[in-house]
Design a binder for these strands. Structure first.
Lengths: 244, 244
DNA sequence: TCCCGGGATTTTGCATACCAAAACCTGTAT
DNA sequence: ATACAGGTTTTGGTATGCAAAATCCCGGGA
């Protein structure tokens, strides 16, 4: 099989040509592409973990998951590996996947990093938001206020995520967006229990933040976001049931 | 096969018990564990990408890589997916993996995020560094100065990475470390061409940074790191061959 | 009773083989 | 040139087999 170390078959200097037609950058609606199975499995498992069907610490057996989801082991393995790289499961060599056990310390670290990234994000957003962006922000704010009035915890968390994520996208920094996306999704796992008590204050702070962004006041936006995320962090530590 | 949707076989409330013997936390030297093949493949491919054996934009065919590395397609697929999640390759659905084409814009975004994270990291490090940590920092600084004197570009980049990474670890924030690790490894890809000209100044700034950390002057450490990373960013834009 | 040890069992990690669908390439007819 | 048709390549997924490692279980000895 390995008679000689073949020198990586050449396929032309740049591989297949990058298709760069006259429509480059049009960002038109792509042809609908069926989601890869590994992605479906990833979403399904993430959902099961978030809603606690799969409990922290539980051992996830590839074959069981595969049977449960009606797929083969391969997409399950691939999904598990991605779940590991994003902190949802721990993959112990030769032992398999275990649902990650969140600790208070880790939550604090996550909230700390989130604070830094979101703060920087707010500054950038304030610098480059258009009138249309501001309009959209107020719409998202409205959704949140309605969820607050309805006392709907789940919708509250979702609305909060949407608002923060939109601000993140405003920065135009894809790397930053992606990173915050990763961190925020994990934060949300810990965040749910304090979403309701924190709600009233949080959404008032959101309003002030949007005003600062609308005014393109970068320093103020940065400061408000720093306070906002720091208070969320504090709220987490003072939640009922916090250790110490 | 899928006669009935089996309800995820129960394996006890918390899965397998966590083996917590009397040696917990000893951090003794683990039994040598042969690296998983997917990890070896990951490292090999990352190396090939970094040293430009695999050129940006090149199409990576699973079967070819597998044969070249003498393994089956499975570990190659898994490695490619991790490489994607860390930004080294782009996985186009139904087309496969292509070595990521770095753009100046992306490099700038990466350097921006890095600046934010490293700056925060410096502040935390200054707050909690021990005398032993300081000693180690000066050792790492020394390694860098020697590489500088020897005009060894590769060692210079490595030393720079080591120093920054050690500061990161000082924070005691594992989440932060991991994130910076991801960003820094990608930055290094872009950074290599400017390592040499930037060297002299950079290592002088490092010295000032270590002094600030040693004095536990958090504000000063933060400020120096902010300047340091911002200057690196500027150096990148003013490098020979930069587009505009 | 509790600890210890060895064999049976389970599970991972990887290899191999196979296949459908999608994307690509090519040559021909327009 | 452009468009189309057919052949080829490559992915994404399935199924299966197997060695090594980890776990579990059970029975014997202190």
């Amino acid at each position: 099989m390995t008679e000689s170390v073949s020198p990586l078959p050449e396929r032309g200097p740049t591989g297949r040509r990058t298709a760069k037609g006259s429509l480059a950058g049009k960002s038109g609606s792509r042809v609908e592409r069926p989601a890869p199975l590994r992605q479906v499995v990833y979403d399904a498992l993430a959902e099961l973990i978030i809603n606690r069907t799969l409990e922290p610490g539980q051992h996830l057996v590839e074959a069981d998951l595969a049977e449960y989801l009606g797929v083969s082991r391969q997409p399950v393995r691939e999904a598990l590996q991605r779940l590991q790289s994003e902190g949802w499961v721990d993959l112990r060599p030769a032992q398999g996947a275990f649902v990650h056990l969140p600790t208070d310390e880790e939550a604090d670290q996550l909230l700390g990093v989130r604070a830094v990234l979101e703060t920087h994000s707010a500054r950038l957003a304030a610098a480059c938001a258009t009138d249309e962006d501001i309009k959209r922000l107020w719409e998202l704010q409205d959704v949140g206020m309605k969820a607050l009035a309805a006392d709907d915890g789940e919708r509250l968390v979702a609305a909060n995520a949407d608002l923060h994520s939109y601000i993140t996208e405003l920065t135009g920094n894809a790397v930053l967006s992606e990173l915050i996306g990763l961190v925020d999704r994990r934060v949300r796992w810990y965040y749910t229990p304090i979403a309701r008590p924190r709600g009233r204050d949080a959404w008032q702070e959101h309003a002030a933040l949007i005003e600062a962004i609308a005014a393109h006041n970068v320093d103020k936006a940065e400061k408000i976001m720093a306070q906002h995320t720091e208070r969320t962090r504090r709220a987490f530590h003072e939640r009922p049931g916090a250790s110490e």
